[in-house]
Amino acid sequence: MNSDITKKIIQIIVLTLVISYGLDKLVFFSLNKVSDKVMTGQAIGKLNHFLSLKDSTNLLVFGNSRANRHIDVAMLSKNGFNMGIDGIGVAYNSTLINTLNKDLKQIVLVHIDTKNFFDNDYTGSDVNALKTKFHRNPIITKVLDSTSQLSTLQKFYYSMNYNGTSIGILKNYFRPNYNFKSYNGYDGLVVTSSQEKIRDIVLAKSISNKECTDNHQINTTALNYLKSIKSFSEKAPNKTFIFITSPIYHDTCEIDNKMLNEIMQELNLTYTDFTNLYKDNKDNSYWKDATHMSNKGAEAFSNHLLQKYKSFQLKQ
């Protein structure tokens, strides 16, 4: 290798770093501009929508896709918002709850899943779904910084914060999915007649008499995020926190539910486990699949919540 080649290598490395850095910032800031105007879609629109109305609602629902699909906020409040997002866990929810105004009077319904708390592999990486707000929202930035969830490369290439979401953002910018002004965050699942057969197969497959071999060691990361919610709730006396686990079609393991119940009692958090609420009701029309209820099931469950928490005066 002669000195000419050495110079070429240095030239290629330096130019690549400079050009890619410049392109990255161009893409990142362009996407920032676009994404800030996007109010629809799960990728970022729903988060933007939440951040814009979180201080003007009286009921907020947090959780994963099950919260999103099971709790019809319109049945619980005229002014509520369901912030359930697919595939997220307690880390994401805890971070968003910490962005709430402490002084405002609100009911905060937090949907938690037992699996999340007894999953050995859970690292809180779901908080990464908030990375589009890195360096743009102080609370989210602080959490992302403190948990080291972002890679070192992400600190150089900001556009990594839009990984996997850019197409969705552009699509929702040019052609929004729905009118966000009339959207309350709840996405009921409709089961069409052609899907019923498949649904029944899926439900039948989920029933097994397998011995319960799930892990029963609490995941400390998940527990710490739960404690962070508790700590926030103590600083926000005007807020009412209700924790729930919504029904599933056939729970193969009860031990984890009991253990989570004990943990919630120890933390003195208001918690009700509805996992087996419809255990004996073998009406498949309540379900889309083994873990998600149909809109019919969600209606029944939301009504059940309304009755159960009458004393909290949900319907305001």
């Binding site: 070429k8 030239q11 290629i12 130019l15 690549t16 050009i19 890619s20 392109l23 990255d24 893409v27 290439y157 556009s159 990594m160 839009y162 990984n163 996997g164 850019s166």
Partner: peptide, 21 residues
């Protein structure tokens, strides 16, 4: 050319940032 190559590599890097799985 070197400039064109580095530009192509840079575009690929940004594509990887946006779409890596």
């Amino acid at each position: 050319s070197t400039i064109k190559l580095t530009f192509i590599v840079s575009v690929i890097i940004i594509m990887l940032c946006l779409f890596y799985s």
